[in-house]
């Protein structure tokens, strides 16, 4: 009986994953891979391509314009491994050159292992950035993944005692202007204002936010905004990816 259990469990698990992927694909209609196996190159309805003009944060302060790197393969059987120690190691590993400093342009490519991965400048159509559908629309892997995201926030003035507020599925780490701001550990759901940084200062003008989201099985996404001392969203910010070049 024990032997049978040991033999059957990996098979059952594999079948479950296959079935889940199949269900996910089927449930997403025209987005991503079609029934015939062809790739749908449209990001709609979750994203549109970012424009050259600055984009205001949304009415609730969410940052919706991001440079997203195609997912890095991270074979993770279960999110139960996402302890603080594991994540700190995973997020501080260098996967590609200048990982913690680069502000890429749309179409830039990096090599991770034997794969060339491309940066995409996108506007999320909702308050959150749906990484699952980002990967799905590109026919990239959706599970066992590490996503990198970068954006450039323009602040009209120096703002002290603000906090970077993040919700993510699953764990993630975020940096503001090169310094670690907040880590979301454990197997998390995306919840608005789930984890927030300590009090920070937003510089007048350009501020670079960098994030890394890791997930095993499940739907990857995140939402990010700044909140003030009272926990209220800051809504007079804009995002301009071109700012990085100034």
């Amino acid at each position: 009986m024990n032997k049978l259990y040991k033999v059957m469990m990996p098979i059952l698990s594999l079948l479950t994953v296959i079935a889940y992927e199949g269900c996910s694909a089927a449930s997403n209609g025209a987005i991503g891979k079609s029934a015939g196996g062809k790739v749908n190159s449209s990001y709609a309805p979750y994203f549109t391509k970012a424009t050259q003009s600055p984009k205001e944060v949304d009415v609730e302060g969410f940052l919706t314009r991001w440079l997203l790197l195609e997912p890095i393969n991270k074979p993770i059987r279960s999110n139960t491994v996402f302890t603080d120690s594991y994540l700190r190691q995973a997020f501080n590993t260098e996967y590609f050159p200048n990982q913690f400093t680069v502000v890429p342009k749309n179409g830039d490519k990096v090599t991770v292992g034997d794969k060339d991965l491309e940066w995409h400048a996108l506007d999320a159509t909702g308050f959150n950035v749906n990484l699952f559908h980002f990967a799905f629309s590109l026919n990239k892997q959706k599970y066992g993944v590490l996503f990198w995201a970068v954006t450039v926030v323009n602040s009209p003035r120096e703002m002290r005692n603000v906090r970077l507020s993040v919700g993510s599925n699953s764990a993630s780490m975020w940096w503001l202007n090169g310094k670690e701001a907040v880590m979301l550990s454990g197997d998390r759901r995306m919840v608005v204002d789930d984890c927030v940084s300590k009090r920070l200062t937003l510089n007048k003008g350009k501020n670079i936010i960098r994030g890394a989201v890791i997930n095993g099985p499940g739907l990857s996404n995140f939402c990010v905004r700044f909140i003030d001392e009272n926990g209220e969203p800051i809504t007079n910010l804009s995002v301009n990816l071109n700012k990085a070049e100034e």
Binding site: G167, V182, D194, E229, N230, G231
Partner: peptide
């Protein structure tokens, strides 16, 4: 509870559960 999972010291807000 300045975030769902984040705690800090802040002014008491009698109208909020945080």
């Amino acid at each position: 509870a300045i975030g769902v999972s984040t705690i800090t010291l802040a002014k008491f807000d009698s109208k909020s559960d945080k």
